[in-house]
Nucleic acid binder design. Structure first.
Length: 277
DNA sequence: AGGACGCCCTGTTCGC
DNA sequence: TGCGAACAGGGCGTCC
């Protein structure tokens, strides 16, 4: 039992957030299984188990591609100080959440799990690019503090979008993926947004006209909202999307031309040479 | 300062 | 057919 089928970007993390809320929030934690402590970059002894067992996740939120889960307040008996209040999960490339009703069976590549009365929620990550942090306050984490605007709730129009993205002189594709400017867009959705906007991925932000920002802004909202609505199940995405056609010899759903690729940064960009100018 | 690039990691795909 | 090489990429670190 799991969810999501793509590399974890904003819509996938939002999908995982719903999953986490449904299966973990409000249920007392009975045990913590750490199968690979490398997934906890700040690991310090057995603190995690000690601090989590008996407590309850109270609410969730998403910051960019990060899932945050808050815990009920409890004071450390020893120190009298407040115990860490939130857990931060990053899914890397291959991270996912999988729930198993039988607490005994561990899915392959499970790195950590929270055991509840009704089963266990596993953090599964074959490639280990993901991570879990445990902090009293989100501002302790540089990687959270540097995050830019949330594309769905904090960017209100084409002018605001242009103002933010033009802070970068990088090509528009890379600027859209820059988490310091806009938080949550990765390689795949950046390609989708530019395809829907019919903008060439190598265009420089400074060269884009108002009407083009309008298209980018509109596509960004539309693509992210639609992906969340469809619970990031790619097989349900509209055929007019680039994503289902992204891959070797894929064809443009708009004009039928074979899609082109290029390298930007260390990433592969898919685009249509005739439709994106 | 900020952009370019190496690195981490491992399952899958490619090419000889 | 088999096996090694190349590829996939989010984010941090280093270098210029």
């Amino acid at each position: 039992m799991h969810c999501g089928s793509l590399m974890p970007e904003l819509p996938e993390v939002e999908t995982y957030r719903c999953y986490f809320r449904r299966l973990a929030v409000g249920k007392p934690i009975r045990g913590v299984i750490v199968s690979d402590r490398r997934i906890f970059p700040d690991w310090s002894g057995g603190q995690l188990r000690h601090r989590l067992v008996g407590r309850t996740f109270t609410r969730t939120e998403r910051r960019g591609k990060y899932l945050i889960a808050y815990l009920d307040a409890r004071r450390d008996a020893a120190s009298g100080t407040k115990a860490g209040a939130c857990m931060v999960i990053h899914f890397g490339m291959t991270g996912s959440l999988q729930f198993s009703r039988s607490g005994l069976r561990q899915p392959p590549y499970s790195r950590a799990a929270f055991r509840f009365d009704h089963g266990a929620l596993h953090f599964v990550d074959s490639r280990r690019f993901g991570g879990i942090w445990w902090v009293a306050d989100l501002t302790e984490l540089d990687r959270i503090r540097i995050l830019g605007a949330d594309p769905l709730s904090e960017i209100n129009g084409p002018d605001a979008m242009s103002e933010i993205v033009r802070r970068s002189s990088q090509p528009i594709k890379q600027a859209l993926m820059n988490q310091r400017l806009i938080a949550g867009i990765g390689n795949l959705y950046a390609d989708e947004i530019l395809f829907q906007s019919r903008i060439h991925p190598r265009r420089r932000p400074a060269s884009l006209k108002r009407v083009e920002w309008e298209r980018i802004f509109h596509s960004m909202k539309e693509v992210l909202r639609e992906a969340i609505r469809l619970c990031s199940q790619m097989e349900r995405y509209p055929d007019s999307y680039l994503l289902p056609h992204r891959g070797r010899d894929g064809q443009c759903p708009r004009c039928g031309a074979v899609l082109k690729t290029l390298r930007q940064g260390q990433r592969t960009t898919y685009y249509c040479r005739t439709c994106q100018k």
